[in-house]
Design a protein around this nucleic acid. Sequence first.
RNA 1: GGCGCCGUAGCCAAGUGGUAAGGCCGCAGACUGCAAAUCUGCCAUUCGACGGUUCGAUUCCGCCCGGCGCCUCCA
Length: 483
Amino acid sequence: MSPRSISLHNTLSRKVEPVEPLEPGVVTLYTCGPTVYNFAHIGNLRTFLFQDLMKRTFLAAGYQVRHCMNITDVEDKIIRDSQKGLDPAADNAARHAAMKELTDRYTKFFLDDTAALRIVEPTYIPRATAYIPQMIALVKALEERGLAYPREGSVYYRIAGLPHYGCLARLDRDGMKAGVSVDADEYERDSAQDFVLWKAARPGEPYWESPWGPGRPGWHIECSAMGIELLGERVDIHSGGVDLVFPHHENEIAQSEGCLGHQWVSTWVHGEFLLVEGEKMSKSLGNFFTLRDLMAKGVDPSTFRFTIQSNHYRKVLNFSFEGLKASENALRRIRQFRKRMEGDGSAAGEGAWKASVDPMARVEAAREAFWAAMADDLNTPEALAALFTLITDINAQDDRVALTPGERGAVLAFLDETDAIFACWPHEEEDALGAEVEALIERRRAAKAAKNWPEADAVRDRLKEMGIILEDRKDGTVGWRKA
RNA sequence: GGCGCCGUAGCCAAGUGGUAAGGCCGCAGACUGCAAAUCUGCCAUUCGACGGUUCGAUUCCGCCCGGCGCCUCCA
């Protein structure tokens, strides 16, 4: 079966257009990864989640996805932080070791976070420092084509040499100077808009040897070098946060296309930022959160994931704790519906609705609506609406006439299909109850059997204080859930 | 100054030139010993304001108000 067609908003055209992979059925995807000198904050994570959602959508639609996400492990802030306590006389090897120690640590934290959020691991997770030779080769190639020039040990890209420079960000090259504060001391460049490909080492910085002397890569060159190396000379999709449109992605285009001589990426996709309680997230406002911060407050990673996915990726998301609470409740509804479908349907009804509500037809309608929404630029709010509509319909039907095992299976299959993308409603393993809780539940069962209501209620209240909410089922069994 | 985005019910959030999806909260009822869960019903004559185009606009155009982003630190 050929994969479903998926459309995405392409920043190049500013239009939603179908993604047509160069190789049918196989999507090549490059996503800008983290700079590892700190914990990822929830804003960063929103972008990684949107990218995962996009990837999972292609996978669920029947494509193979070759996904490359870089780890930026050499950069100004990394150098600043990692070299702090070093002896000024430290040699280059010691400086590299200090940098690696820092980036290894935060890379691990990052991968822990993405695993907690059920982000599918990329096919390739290259570290910039492992591709220095490729970057140098790319800079040399640009130099040979007259698109780069050395200055005092650094190498700059000559944007005047690339006619379509600015095509992504839609910059008016003549108007670019206006209003932009130009660093007066960057005197060595031919033009203020030229950007650095290779930076000459300054005293106290780790460096690599290069044809231009000791130095290190500029900000944008790694993505071009690693993207071309691992995914090839033409890439279907490249994504990141909106702030990367300019200069990062614009400059990646300049580097890659200047070197390759043809279009590099077909579709550029950018995710919006998030605000926290209506304000830009900042440490000084006290609204700066990492996933760890949320988990310390008792927030389940899947609740955060659901919150992010409840909004469209190209809209500013106002993150709030009230919103998190709403997500938690909505998720509970989905999970309990799932549990209900996993049951045997022992609550039978009169059959009054059976003729008018065909569960199989409802599932099929939901599937169509779900996919139409997802295929239309990942419209997750609409896709979720299709799911919730189905839940309401099936719940109502199951109340009247228990669904057959086959119908339950069809519903569960649809839940699995949607969870392959949303990754939020798995069959959770219920934690084992402590002996004390088990004993209390038994005590209440006995009190209830004896119709000793005050005792039964007292025990139930006590369990509630312990975070366990009881649910008396129709068949006489007692279920429970965490508050 | 240049380019661009957003403003839909208490909160979150889709959407369309033809009369407002979905979620959360809330209210009423069914069920329950009482709850919980579940189900049913209710919850925007209205889509920031004002004009215009149109048979008809939340949806197109203009203008205004409000919030925001980018213009080489940045998811």
